[in-house]
């Protein structure tokens, strides 16, 4: 684990809550981005990320200093997203989350972002909850299999199985939706 993070954890545990912001600030965008991809809804994503930060602060005492803080935080976030999606059971619609784009961006940039997010959302919507988590972590966040398994709390074999299914579904979906991009190379 990072020594700086270790020190910050110690400071928070010693009763300095101000150090908590310094500890989690580097993951500010990552947390929300991952949450949006997993839930597909900005409001739910923000709530889940807030819940994850709250739990991280509450259970910081139980954090194993030999482990990666980033992975620990991501694991909490994934569990929060899972709980959130189970409670809300809202359908994935990443197209609705276009309002996440920074207000400073111009109309063209906003439109382009909306398009990208919409396309990605359409592809991810065909995956099950576990398949989406595995695909997002392994292929979009580019974590390795062991890290993904650790974050999700499952075995590497389970990750491989879900990843294989997810990639097959994504391929089918992309072929169906964007045949001109992938091209009929067979």
């Amino acid at each position: 684990m990072d020594e700086k993070e270790n020190t910050l954890v110690e400071m928070v545990l010693a009763g300095n809550p101000g150090a908590f912001e310094t500890l989690v600030k580097p993951y500010r965008r990552t947390l929300l981005g991952l949450s949006v991809r997993l839930l597909g809804n900005e409001e739910d994503a923000k709530e889940a990320a807030q819940e994850a930060l709250l739990k991280a602060y509450r259970y910081l005492k139980g954090f194993d200093r030999n482990q990666s803080f980033r992975n620990w935080l991501t694991r909490i976030l994934v569990n929060s997203c899972r709980e959130s999606s189970r409670h809300a059971r809202r359908t994935l619609s990443l197209a609705e989350s276009a309002s996440v784009i920074e207000p400073a961006a111009g109309p063209a940039a906003r439109y382009q972002q909306k398009e990208f997010r919409s396309r990605l959302g359409e592809c991810l919507a065909v995956l099950s909850e576990r398949e989406r988590a595995v695909f997002v972590l392994r292929d979009l966040e580019e974590r390795n299999i062991a890290e993904t398994a650790g974050i999700l709390g499952v075995s590497s074999i389970s990750v491989r199985v879900h990843l294989s299914r997810a990639r097959t579904k994504i391929k089918e979906e992309i072929l169906k939706r964007f045949p001109e991009i992938v091209g009929g190379s067979s």
Partner: peptide
Amino acid sequence: AEFTLYQRSIELARDLARQDKAADW
């Protein structure tokens, strides 16, 4: 040919994810 399709689809998904500016608070 099938393998190429798989590779392209994964690349496309990664490209979309990269181009999609991460949400921020």
